[in-house]
Design a protein around this nucleic acid. Sequence first.
DNA 1: TATTAAACGCAACTGAATTGCGTTAAAATT
DNA 2: AATTTTAACGCAATTCAGTTGCGTTTAATA
Lengths: 144, 144
Amino acid sequence: MIMVNNKLIDVTFKKYGLRKTSFRKNLFELFHNSSNTLSAKEISSKFSSSADKVSIYRALESFEKSGLIHKVPDKNNLLRYSLCKSECRPNKHAHDHAHFLCSVCEETFCLDDFTLPSTKSHNGFLINDLKIIMEGTCVSCKSI
Amino acid sequence: MIMVNNKLIDVTFKKYGLRKTSFRKNLFELFHNSSNTLSAKEISSKFSSSADKVSIYRALESFEKSGLIHKVPDKNNLLRYSLCKSECRPNKHAHDHAHFLCSVCEETFCLDDFTLPSTKSHNGFLINDLKIIMEGTCVSCKSI
DNA sequence: TATTAAACGCAACTGAATTGCGTTAAAATT
DNA sequence: AATTTTAACGCAATTCAGTTGCGTTTAATA
Ligand SMILES: [Mn+2]
Ligand SMILES: [Mn+2]
Ligand SMILES: [Zn+2]
Ligand SMILES: [Zn+2]
């Protein structure tokens, strides 16, 4: 099942201070090979119930705290996560890109070249983090 | 308890096709007099348990469908709503503003004067809806 | 190899949100 | 004004994402 090479796992887990348990390695791989964002339920189904849901939630929390993944807003208010860019750290998630949700195929796309406004404050509100979430029709679904 | 004049209630409820029950009139008033957004729990406490939570949820759903209120993001993934601008209709919620989540008080604020980019496409992606969600410290929490 | 500390897995729990259904009240019709 | 119709109400029961407790296993380390 491991398609991501072990070197990358070693480097990544060392960098983020994570234990290399078989489940967490597989979970990392799942994120790494997913173009779309993931909910706990989706993760569970990918593991075909071989992973306990509590382990999933705790791993997600741990990954998020380390700066490996970040929360993404979800239409149905579920917890949903996506792999971070390599610049992310526990104290600073660098979400310097917009996310696009296709209403047709339900895929999520990272629009890396969509530059975010770099505003740091607005009317006295101090902005630490800014997310842009788009909804619409993706390139491939448009032409169907 | 009614501070919003009855004329406004009449006009608004007619405009949005809503029944004038005493609870829903009070709920509308609550939204009208609130500077910040509201969750079901917060609404419940304002009514000091005189309104059933099911009625609250159903009223919120009904208000939202009519275009009177809109969902806003919440720090703890709760359902949270805010009064819409007068331009909103069932089929077209004009969410032309950004939302701000305070990490300290966990409130959500509508930044009505932070207008969203009106981009309709990007690299072939057709954008129907665009959301900006900011996180940071709100005005009041900043000065504590 | 032994120690220790984090991760796992199972069951039980929590709490926001939903559903069912009989009752009440607003609006429409007569 | 009285009747019919239909939406809203209220209570109980349910659902389900997410959490907590705790004993066991496994990875890191010494
Ligand atoms: Mn992303
Ligand atoms: Mn708003
Ligand atoms: Zn698509
Ligand atoms: Zn605040």
